[in-house]
Amino acid sequence: MMPRKPLGQVPGIYHRAIGDIIVTAVSDGYADAGIEPLRNIDPSDALLLFEEKLRPVRRASINCYLVYSEGRLALIDTGCGPYFGPTAGQLLRNLSAIGIEGEDIDAILLTHIHPDHSAGLTDLAGGRRIFANAKLVVHRNELIHWFDDVEMAKVSDQDRRFFFDTAREQVTPYKDVVQSFEDQTEVFPGVMSRPLPGHTPGHSGFVISSKGEELLIWGDTVHIPEVQIFRPDVTLTFDCDQALAAKTREKVFEEASSRKLLVAGSHLDFPGFSHIVQRRDGYHLLPEPWSYTMR
């Protein structure tokens, strides 16, 4: 009898210990897109960087991260929900594969409010909170910006629908459980917020620390690793403040490389745990090797 050939991938799950805290990368899938949003780089130069990495298209991995700490469970970002087509929106399916349902999550920590990070919060069919028992933790400036009618009136109809309307329909059901923060704040046991401004008004990373070990989950500090690792000056049209976003990225690269800091990102290839190193020709990304143990 011939063995049945596989019809799909195994669930996108990877565990990593940071001291006594376990961080689990959970894939929400991926989204393919073009290079039109790139700024500060000639398109031919961008395409050459993709060719050097043997990448025929711009494919953005979409990663979320579970944090198990002191008997509680947080989820950093919620993925795309139904907004980005069938290759994304896989968070709940992958959580279910390891026995976790929405009601098991104690806190949702958002790096920022963009639809590939916050659009998995609410079931649009009935406005139901998918994470019924979770508080929603997000930078104060995110709430101010995306719920500001004056700011919304400044953008195109497409951006209004994609960013502002989506933010409101996803976040509003959590309005009674929102906990906002500013600057560096402990937002969950062993987890400190880290301001990373520029991409959005309140874009933040989260630093996870335990027993002398540390991980920076840097959100959208890098969108397109094939380009922005080597060219941190390259920005995208959906950076609210492009100059500040580039400056923040450079500062993070300098710190991560000098300190040999472990990082993870929303759009680094899954599972995203990596190091940044600086060489004579610029910065390079070194993905951490897969490990059988949760080192």
Rank of each mutant, 00 (worst) to 15 (best):
G89E: 00
Y65G: 11
P82E: 14
V67I: 15
Y65K: 10
A60K: 03
V67T: 08
R59N: 05
Q90D: 01
L47A: 09
D77K: 04
Y68M: 13
V57C: 10
Y83P: 01
N94P: 12
E51P: 04
V57A: 08
C80I: 01
G81H: 04
P86M: 03
E51A: 14
L73I: 15
G71H: 08
A74I: 09
E70Y: 07
Y65W: 10
R58C: 06
Y65H: 14
P56N: 14
R58S: 14
V67Q: 01
L49K: 08
L48K: 14
C80F: 14
G85T: 05
G89P: 00
N63P: 05
S69P: 13
Y83A: 02
R59A: 00
N94W: 02
T78M: 02
L49I: 13
P56V: 14
L47C: 02
L91T: 11
L66S: 07
L75Q: 11
P86A: 11
R93D: 12
P86V: 06
S44Q: 14
N94Q: 12
P82F: 08
A74S: 14
D45T: 08
L73Q: 11
N94E: 06
G85P: 02
Y83D: 05
R55P: 02
Y83I: 05
D45M: 04
L54F: 10
S61W: 04
D77R: 00
K53M: 12
R93S: 13
R59L: 04
G85V: 00
R55K: 15
G71N: 11
E70C: 10
Y65E: 06
C80L: 07
T78Q: 04
G71S: 10
D45L: 13
E70Q: 15
D45K: 14
N63E: 09
Q90T: 07
G89C: 03
A46F: 01
N94C: 07
Y83C: 03
R55W: 04
N63D: 09
E51L: 00
L73R: 12
F84M: 13
G85Y: 08
G81A: 01
E70G: 08
I62N: 04
S61E: 15
S61P: 05
A88G: 11
G85I: 05
R55F: 02
D77T: 10
L66I: 05
V67A: 12
C64V: 01
L92D: 11
G71W: 04
R72N: 12
L49V: 08
L49C: 05
R59G: 01
